[in-house]
Design a protein around this nucleic acid. Structure first.
Lengths: 208, 208
DNA sequence: CCTTTAACGCAACTGGAGTCCCGTTATGAG
DNA sequence: CTCATAACGGGACTCCAGTTGCGTTAAAGG
């Protein structure tokens, strides 16, 4: 009633173990982008990665478990952020980055599959939330700067503005099915910037 | 090389066939809401519906196929729309309706599962797009009315405004994981109304 | 009411995703 | 360098989602 054995791969994370993880996560990303979440077969991923299927089942167990690990990996690599000097400029840059990611032949289906996996499994959902919380925090400073410039009212929630830019694009990816083009990105950025300047994302303090 | 046989259930759609469809779709909705898309078993649905599993496999074949039919059914039942006289009022009513749906114990998981299924299957995705196109068109008149009142610039795309209201709430459901509360709904409606009044959803005509 | 056959239901069957056993490799400590 | 064992790999095995065959029930037409 004591031996909680450590996760495989944590005790001896030397060369081979790390190479296996890298190869499997890479193969998982490829397979997710090509086939989607539901058609995923761990044996197929093992084959792609040049690894025994027993290894994949032992270390990750299930498809959602593997996806969760992939998301943790993805959360660690960071993207450079642009600084244009205006809120609209910064938000447009963000929207276009999201747009080019979601309309990319590999990344679009991959993100769709990641979100799908998260909808099916709690652990994966937590990993996804962490991933987007990090991304949101990376972009938040451009709103903070706008507040300091006086472009946007005090009390505005930066994260809420950032999410407002992305949301319409993800809506298209997952629900509406409409094309995710540059016009859609620019419109999302403009709408978010306009609403932010008007104070739509400010906390409702007692103001007369 | 000729006999394209008709879809089962279309030739003789009398009492029994209709009852079976109703019971199966009902059971499918329950199972989706409770277990989610990936844990779905057609045999389990057959058991719940009090129907032979062969019947379910023969008429719908796969889980996405069944979900697509469920979406078609759901698209036919319509929701009443409120008219408050102002764009913000109408959009707030819409946002709160979406909010109460997505935070409902049954409907929230159900919609998450429906969107997940659509992400995995083309036929289901088409059904989902039709469903939301219909819902969007049902709400669009409140934007059209705002244009006629002069509250919103000419050339504003009504559907785009409606989607802008829903998008942040679906983003929370599927991606961010933040709670879908009334404050979020009201903020989404306020942001969309503000952006719409400022012309953020108007087509970019040649204006100096 | 009688006939035809679409659609259903039961039960046996199948294939492949996921598990288990055990021998092999190579990491990290002394 | 040597040893103990974490981690990997191949292959046999299990179990159940999905298929198939065939007899039964009940729409639809006359």
């Amino acid at each position: 009633m004591s031996d909680e054995r450590p996760e495989p791969g944590t005790v001896r994370p030397g060369g081979r173990t790390a190479k296996v993880r890298e190869a499997v996560l890479r193969a998982a990303g490829d397979a997710l982008a090509e086939d989607g979440f539901d058609r995923l077969d761990l044996a197929e991923i093992a084959r792609r990665a040049g690894v025994g299927k027993t290894t994949v089942y032992r270390r990750w167990g299930t498809v959602p478990g593997l996806v969760a690990d992939l998301l943790t990996e993805m959360a660690e690599e960071s993207l450079p952020r642009t600084e244009t000097g205006t809120l609209l400029g910064d938000l447009t840059a963000q929207a276009r980055l999201v747009q080019s990611t979601l309309s990319d032949t590999r990344q679009g289906p991959l993100f769709k599959a990641l979100i799908t996996a998260a909808a099916c499994d709690r652990q994966t959902a937590d990993a996804l939330h962490r991933f987007y919380r990090i991304r949101t925090e990376e972009w938040a400073p451009c709103v903070t700067a706008a507040i300091e410039r006086g472009e946007v009212p005090e009390g505005t929630d930066p994260a809420e503005v950032i999410r407002a830019v992305s949301a319409p694009l993800y809506y298209r990816l997952l629900i509406g099915g409409d094309p995710i083009d540059r016009a859609a990105a620019d419109r999302a950025a403009l709408a978010a910037a306009t609403a932010a300047r008007a104070g739509a994302f400010a906390v409702r303090t007692a103001n007369g």
